[in-house]
């Protein structure tokens, strides 16, 4: 088995691993988008920018305060979540009564501000972020060499995704969330403070983006535009999966990452656009998306 379809297995598995890692980020980001969209009906265009902010918080913590990776893994999502809470309370909240498109436009403006400000301050080139000591090196799996950090990213993302799925689908808090997504007025009439839930949901959703940013920092470097093009791919992922399904967001994210990896092996020129082509095809066949309900 020296060659699979004429491709050396090392290259194939290497690309599949890269695809899996990209897929992990797609999953984490589209999960956050789906949670936010479900509750707020806002397509959070600032999601990519907040992913970048998460990575930058990690880098700033390390550079100026000497706080390392593990600290950043906790602090950066909290910081991004806090930013999210402020944005929701001061701005997004004013738009729930008007057309949902305004939420998209507002968060687009916010994305410009975040990316522009960081670019102004730090330039466009990336800042390297070291892999933590504990996760350096790699494991030889026999058929391929697996860098430990990459394995960790996949495992950690999966764990967070599944944890989020569990929290939403299987806990009491998740039941409130699902109910409020369907009928916020009635949930409020049961004595639950829905506006606070909405704020927390947004905070949580963007904290997931912040977490993804920290996980990405050692792989992709920390740069102001790191989330800018990524987020559009994630939108396509969300359209393909269909909004409103948590598990759908996770599965679609990972699946498309893998497909992209395969495209890199067999037809590298198309790897950038394969997700968009799939989106177009899915829309023709199943307009609500693979896991979506028409709403």
């Amino acid at each position: 088995m020296s060659h699979l379809f004429g491709i050396p297995p090392q290259a194939l598995f290497g690309q599949l691993l890269l695809g899996l890692i990209n897929g992990s980020f797609y999953a984490l980001l589209s999960l956050g988008l789906a949670v936010i969209f479900g509750m707020l009906n806002v397509v959070n265009m600032a999601h990519g920018a907040l992913y970048m902010v998460g990575a930058f918080v990690a880098w700033l913590l390390l550079t100026y305060l000497g706080v390392g990776y593990w600290g950043a893994l906790v602090l950066a999502p909290l910081a991004v979540g806090a930013v999210g809470l402020v944005l929701e309370r001061t701005m997004l909240r004013r738009l729930y009564k008007v057309d949902h498109l305004y939420g998209l436009l507002l968060t687009f403006g916010l994305a410009l501000i975040f990316e522009g400000a960081f670019r102004h301050q730090y330039g466009v080139s990336g800042q390297p972020y070291p892999i933590p000591e504990l996760l350096k090196g790699g494991i030889n799996l026999g058929f391929m060499y697996l860098p430990t950090y990459r394995g960790w990213v996949v495992a950690a993302s999966l764990l967070v995704c599944l944890g989020t799925w569990f929290a939403i689908e299987r806990t009491k808090l998740g039941a409130y969330l699902r109910a409020a997504t369907e009928n916020p007025t009635l949930v409020q009439a049961f004595g639950i403070n829905v506006p606070v839930m909405v704020s927390l949901t947004y905070g949580f959703g963007v904290a997931l983006a912040g977490l993804a940013g920290v996980l990405a920092a050692p792989i992709y470097q920390v740069s102001p535009l790191m989330g800018s093009n990524l987020i559009i791919v994630v939108f396509a992922v969300v359209v393909i999966g269909g909004m409103g399904s948590i598990l759908g967001a996770i599965v679609t994210g990972l699946g498309l990452g893998l497909l992209e990896g395969l495209a890199k092996v067999f037809y590298p020129e198309a790897s950038n656009i394969v997700v968009f082509v799939i989106m177009a095809v899915v829309l023709m066949v199943k307009p609500a998306g693979l896991f979506g309900r028409e709403r």
Partner: peptide, 16 residues
């Protein structure tokens, strides 16, 4: 002044 930041601010003000 960074152009995207100013444009972004106008966006936010217009929408709000």
């Amino acid at each position: 002044l960074p152009v995207p930041v100013v444009i972004g601010c106008i966006f936010v003000v217009c929408v709000l």
